[in-house]
Simulated scan of single mutants.
Amino acid sequence: MYVFVYGTLTDPDRVQTVLEGHPTAEYALEETATLEGVHRVDGRYPTLAPGGSVDGRVLAVDEVGLERLDRYEGVEDGLYVRVTVPYSGRDDEAFVYVGDPARLGVDDRIDWPGDGPLLERVRRVVREDEIVLSSRE
């Protein structure tokens, strides 16, 4: 499975800290990539907002690695949501984490349009605005 990262997890040492320590967690910090259709907004932690583009890296992880990333990103607590985006050139998808603007102190700078939970609003934008991940290597 692929995961696009654009914040603290672009640091190889941080990735190693988060993903290692479990005997079955396998991962690889792969290529650099660009996620088109969203841009980075810095707050308490980095997050994404509609429009623009953001550069980052791609991690290849197994199920255990994905579970560890979910814990690190606070998915269960609602700090971040995890969505899939098309991964151009791979005929595949990649996961990406999007932080809750209100919890990260940037809600005055981010508008995920529509009503309902953040996850559904982000999924709608990904689908309707054709957000796509492309390799830069």
Rank of each mutant, 00 (worst) to 15 (best):
G78R: 02
D107A: 14
A94V: 10
Y87C: 09
Y87A: 12
G105W: 01
G78D: 06
L119C: 04
Y97L: 08
G99S: 03
R90W: 10
E128C: 12
R121V: 03
R103G: 06
D108F: 09
Y87H: 15
R82N: 07
W112N: 08
G114P: 04
G105C: 01
V83S: 12
R109L: 10
E73S: 00
V75Y: 04
P101V: 02
R90N: 06
R124L: 08
R127I: 02
V75R: 14
R103Q: 12
P101E: 00
I131S: 08
V81M: 10
P117A: 13
V83C: 15
L119N: 11
L79E: 12
R124P: 01
V83T: 08
S88N: 12
P117R: 14
R123G: 02
Y72T: 03
R103W: 06
E120H: 14
D129L: 04
L104S: 01
P117W: 00
L118R: 13
L118K: 09
D108H: 14
G99D: 09
D108E: 14
R123Q: 13
G89C: 02
R90A: 13
V122H: 05
T84P: 13
G116T: 06
V96I: 11
G114H: 05
P117V: 10
G89F: 06
V75A: 11
D77S: 15
P101C: 01
A102T: 03
Y80G: 02
D129P: 09
D92I: 05
G89N: 00
V85I: 11
R123Y: 05
D108T: 13
P117D: 11
D77A: 15
R103P: 02
P117C: 01
R124A: 15
R127Y: 09
L118N: 13
V122Q: 11
E128L: 15
A94E: 05
